[in-house]
Write a protein that binds this DNA or RNA. Structure first.
Lengths: 167, 167
DNA sequence: ATATCGCGGATATTGCAGATCCATTTAGTC
DNA sequence: GACTAAATGGATCTGCAATATCCGCGATAT
């Protein structure tokens, strides 16, 4: 028997902006300390829609991952050392920290509704889904931007800086 | 500094139908061997929209989790022992097996585009996101419907059967 | 035969991601 | 001080997928 899964899984997918911001944060991590890059520079660097990217960068600022300075020569930089920024922080800043599986307590609905005394503990299924989400978060929490930089070729930061500031 | 995450995370959330079918599969696992329950019975049991639920149940049939018999007294039953059905199989049958993070290779776009020889290996960020997805899948693969039944009170199956067949 | 069920296709409806624009604020530069 | 470059916040538009329903077909028990 061959399994047939839906070809496309709309609901589960992370938005594209997740990839954008992970790469943008990695790029900012390659700047010299104190240097900034504007939303327009980052958008040019990856050929992304600038206004929308700016909105997402703001979300990272609110989450404490990035710091922003306004005015000429302003822009974004990391708000803390790269070793203190986990991928989990970035992803949850962009996509929200809400667990993907939300228990709506359907065990209390319909003809099969359980009495309240049987619902003191969390739904077993919801607990298992929460376990899986915890495993996902633990995995992402174990990787920092510094780890990512460490896996890049040593020549990457210099090239990134020159291309980012060009033009 | 207090973190501010988006209150709602549309893209990441699993559809509600995931919860529906996890519960429906758990319910079917409590039937006597060979017994079936119709989509209408399951919809009544949880107060769900019957036509839509039927569609999702068909997806579980295509995935080899459920077996269906047509005609009067027909309905759905597990296609294999409960110990052989993992939560991962159910979730991926409903929501698709596509990983939530899809690498669009933006490292090859824009001014910062990397040369092809730097892209032989998979993108580091994509690899880390894939690691996290693997941890999530491993967690769900480690739980079977039999495990879920084992955590239910011993009186549950009898009550489930009687309420499901009632009316 | 006929009523009961699953199956497949087609079709609304709705909410959010993706995307853009503008007015405001902030802060450097001349 | 005026100008300018940048982030910030609000409002808005569009496209697509999850949700939800209906109908006709086929299968099968009684």
């Amino acid at each position: 028997m061959d399994l047939q899964y839906p070809r496309y899984a709309g609901g589960v997918k992370l938005p594209v902006s997740t990839e954008w911001l992970l790469h943008c944060a990695t790029t900012l991590a390659q700047l010299e300390p104190g240097a900034t890059a504007s939303a327009a520079q980052l958008a040019d660097y990856y050929d992304l829609p600038a206004p929308y990217l700016a909105k997402q960068l703001q979300a990272l600022v609110r989450a404490g991952v990035l710091a922003a300075t306004t005015g000429p020569r302003g822009g974004f930089r990391l708000a803390r050392p790269a070793a203190d920024i986990t991928l989990l922080r970035i992803v949850e800043a962009v996509d929200g920290a809400a667990p993907p599986y939300e228990c709506r307590e359907i065990r209390r609905q319909g003809r099969g509704a359980l009495p309240p005394e049987d619902c003191r503990d969390a739904c077993v299924l919801a607990a298992k889904m929460a376990d899986a989400h915890r495993a996902w978060r633990d995995s992402l929490r174990g990787v920092t931007l510094a780890d990512i930089l460490g896996e890049l070729p040593p020549t990457a930061p210099a090239r990134t800086r020159s291309r980012l500031m060009a033009k």
